[in-house]
């Protein structure tokens, strides 16, 4: 099936009554395979909320999110989990590696959740670490890795099941300049190489040259979209 991810008039708000925060207002976006989309905008503009909605981690108040042709609304927790497992890899600012597991075991967990075990899983995990250039650190615990290495392992874990969509929230914000550059070009390659949808939320202007499309947000709304389909 075609790789596809879209939002259709999505609104999300937090809290209730006077304290209601409208984090997303009527956002309609369609993402294309092979493209690296940057979501930019000031703090509090709703970028993370958009990413959570795109990742099927929350159900919008109104509007629809469609992941690989499946509408998130109406799925129960387990179904949504399976959809995420099949379709999406996540990369976080704080890496979120399993701290008691080695690099390769972190990748193996992602495979195990998808039901892949044994020697086949081991081969895939090794290949994933290889692809991001940290195979030599396979047996290290996260605490023994540098920031850049941690993020590479996290990307390997996100990609080990070969998901069509990769969502990253500030993936370079915790990294020094050089590591940030490397991670950015790594993600750039990931989008182009396997015709994935890659969505990166960032503040960092250094990403600008690497994005195929830039979506700017403010106050929960899309204010500018360089790749709008006319």
């Amino acid at each position: 099936m075609n790789t596809c991810l879209s939002t259709d008039h999505v609104s999300v708000s937090y809290g209730s009554g006077a304290a209601t925060v409208r984090a997303l207002r009527d956002v309609t976006l369609d993402f294309r395979p092979g493209e690296l989309t940057l979501i930019m905008g000031p703090s509090g503009s709703g970028k993370t909320t958009l990413l959570s909605a795109l990742g099927g981690l929350l159900t919008p108040d109104t509007g629809e999110v469609s992941i690989m042709g499946t509408t998130v609304r109406g799925l129960d927790q387990e179904e949504a989990g399976r959809l995420r497992q099949r379709s999406i890899g996540y990369v976080f600012q704080a890496f979120r590696l399993f701290r008691s597991l080695t690099a390769i075991e972190n990748a193996l967990v992602a495979l195990e959740i998808g039901g892949v075990r044994g020697p086949r899983a081991l081969d895939k995990a090794k290949a994933a670490l290889e692809a991001v250039g940290v195979s030599h650190r396979a047996n290290c615990l996260p605490s023994e890795l540098s920031g850049g290495e941690k993020q590479r392992v996290a990307i390997a874990r996100a990609l080990v099941n070969d998901p069509p969509i990769l969502l990253a929230d500030e993936p370079t914000a915790s990294l020094d300049h050089a590591s940030g550059e490397q991670i950015a070009s790594l993600l750039r390659g990931i989008a182009a190489g396997a015709r994935r949808i890659v969505v990166v939320v960032t503040h960092d202007n250094r990403w600008l040259e690497r994005g195929d499309r830039i979506v700017e947000m403010s106050d929960g709304q899309v204010t500018k979209d360089s790749g709008e389909i006319q």
Binding site: E78, R82, L83, R84, V109, A110
Partner: peptide
């Protein structure tokens, strides 16, 4: 708890 949240985001079932 944060790791359990990560597992859930990655699609781990309740059973897992």
């Amino acid at each position: 708890l944060e790791e359990f949240a990560t597992l859930k985001a990655m699609g781990a079932s309740r059973f897992y």
